[in-house]
């Protein structure tokens, strides 16, 4: 089946991101296709390039990037939710006159229309939130 995940929980503060990641790996292991993970609400913090968790804890940002690179899963971040929370890619940083970049590939800033599209196109859209 074709799946998509909607993640709305912030990393480390609650379980949602960890559960979503485990679910994503389980889908792939069972031979399903995971088209994309869409990050919305506080879930956009999963795309924070500068996250530096202690070495003996899971690195969620790197884990998402690894999933994307190994299994060609798109990592789509709602641009409106991201910008107001300080998550900007190179283009948005330049546009807003900021000298730091907090989002990089394979995460991509995109619109909510992508979420609707995923929901319509995939067989299942599974939501994880706090």
């Amino acid at each position: 089946m074709r799946y998509a995940i909607l993640l709305m929980g912030t990393p480390y503060s609650d379980q949602a991101s960890h559960s979503a990641l485990r679910f994503a790996h389980a889908l792939v292991a069972r031979g399903h296709c995971l088209e994309a993970v869409f990050f919305y609400h506080d879930g956009v913090h999963n795309a924070a390039r500068l996250a530096a968790p202690p070495q003996d804890e899971p690195h969620l940002v790197d884990a998402w990037a690894g999933l994307a690179n190994e299994h060609r899963v798109a990592l789509q971040v709602c641009i409106a939710a991201a910008l107001r929370r300080g998550l900007l890619d190179e283009r948005e940083a330049a546009r807003h006159g900021k000298d730091g970049v907090s989002v990089q590939a394979p995460f991509e800033l995109t619109g909510l229309g992508q979420l609707v599209d995923l929901g319509m196109r995939c067989d299942r859209l599974v939501t994880f939130g706090p």
């Binding site: 919305y40 939710a81 909510l112 229309g113 609707v116």
Partner: peptide
């Protein structure tokens, strides 16, 4: 911001 962001999703879907 749950209500606001939920409404945003509804409006975008309708706009599409």
């Amino acid at each position: 911001s749950w209500l606001k962001e939920g409404l945003d999703a509804a409006l975008v879907a309708a706009a599409f």
